[in-house]
Design a protein around this nucleic acid. Sequence first.
DNA 1: AGACGTACCTGACCGC
DNA 2: TGCGGTCAGGTACGTC
Length: 278
Amino acid sequence: MPELPEVETVCRGLAPALTGHKITSVTVNRRKLRIPVPRDFEKTLTGSRIVKIRRRAKYIIMELDNGTSALWHLGMSGSMIISATMPVPAKHDHVIFQAGGKTITFNDPRRFGLVTADQTKNLADNKLLRHLGPEPLESGFNAKYLHEKLSTKKIAVKLAIMDQRLVVGVGNIYASEALFAARIDPRRSALTITREEAATLARAIKAVLKRAIAAGGSSLRDYVQADGELGYFQHAWAVYNKKGKACPGCRCTLAKTGGIAKIIQGGRATFYCPVRQG
DNA sequence: AGACGTACCTGACCGC
DNA sequence: TGCGGTCAGGTACGTC
């Protein structure tokens, strides 16, 4: 489920609890995730200290003092649970470790997530990370870059911005939300997006993600002290999952337009306002 | 090389 | 209550 803001929130929740602490135990209950958990994963982590926790795209990178980094991906349904006391085992608790007096549980019903490790110095060449495009909130992702990238692609602009090689972290929800904010029809071929529209879209992507990260940050306060599940928080979407609803900030009449439309692109649901994004 | 479909897996929900 | 069908926020891979 989680997109970039959710993963960022998970990192921000884990970092204060774990940074500087030694991993005292690791249990892997199920090795068959999207890719197999490495056989030496437990041995690699146990006894080493967590130096730093950061995010790259939708990966959580846990840098250890032994030269390796643990990589976590939440897939569609993953979450991380911080417990101050030994938690009651639950279904789909695939990896559990202890550090800093806390127990961290990686739970993922659909098992599209993954847990692995690699040498920190090799991360740039890591098979999972090497193809990833720029971070949307960094300066390299801007109007010029986006326009150049879109200008060579025939595919729909919504599919283009979800391509992690073009820019990371824009998943199905935020793609719809950003295009709505930018007033761009998601069905348009990427190469028809003007320089000016690309500038608006780049700004919209940043704004939508930042707003969601802020919402996630405020939800963090509730559980960072005690037990809590990281990875989900309440958020008010403008168009996502709002088929038939009135489009916020739009003056179109619901009876006339039918409100927010739902279409399928690349097998995934897209929500947009045919009037505002016409 | 780009575009597109498909596969991976469980659970929630809806209509009958 | 049960059953089958559909859908779900991600990503890699195969095929054309």
